[in-house]
């Protein structure tokens, strides 16, 4: 495959799967794009052949993603769903401490649209670690940080090919 163009996404609209039946609904758009950080987790295998600083090999230990969206325009109804996710009655209240996010069905799909490339879809995400914002006269972004992981049900017996992200509408 040859180089086929620049890495331009186009406006990155943020969607969350918080609609009925998990439908994606538009949360908002950002000041200057969405930051996505995908981390391949690996465990170094240290051996005495290479000493104490250099791994001899690595083991796969899954993969996670952090998505940061400084939202400057927001659908407040959708935001309330995102920030109130869990068995709490509303945003601002606690869910039951110990509430399990994935198995409890509180994780949601996160979609990032693209008009110039294929969109991104993270299969299971939660708000983590922060929602951060500045209150002022000047328009300020509400920055939501999402954590996505390859959720696997406790009934599964393998995590092979569990989905972290896709760029399709499957």
């Amino acid at each position: 495959m040859a180089i086929d163009g620049y890495t331009i996404n186009g406006p990155a609209l943020v969607y969350t799967g918080t609609g009925n039946a998990g439908a994606l609904e538009l949360l908002g758009y950002t000041t200057d794009g969405v930051d996505v950080r995908i981390t391949e987790n690996v465990e170094p295998i240290m051996t005495d052949l290479l000493g104490t600083q250099t791994p001899q090999d690595f083991q796969d230990m899954g993969m996670v993603a952090e998505i940061t969206a400084p939202l400057i325009a927001i659908d407040r109804a959708v935001l309330a769903k995102v920030m109130g996710r869990g068995n709490r009655a509303a945003a601002g209240l606690l869910s039951t401490p110990g509430n399990v996010k994935g198995a409890g069905g509180w994780a949601f799909r996160l979609g990032i649209s693209s008009s110039a490339d294929s969109p991104w879809s993270f299969a299971a995400a939660i708000l983590r670690p922060t929602a951060q914002f500045r209150l002022s006269t000047k328009a300020q972004p509400l920055t939501l940080q999402f954590f996505a992981w390859p959720y696997v049900s406790y009934t599964a017996t393998t995590a092979l090919n569990a989905v972290l992200w896709t760029r399709s509408l499957s």
């Binding site: 609609g19 439908a23 609904e25 499957s170």
Partner: peptide, 15 residues
Amino acid sequence: VLISYLGRKTQFWYP
């Protein structure tokens, strides 16, 4: 508007 794709699970909801 509820948008679906043939043979896919993905749906979009736009009030």
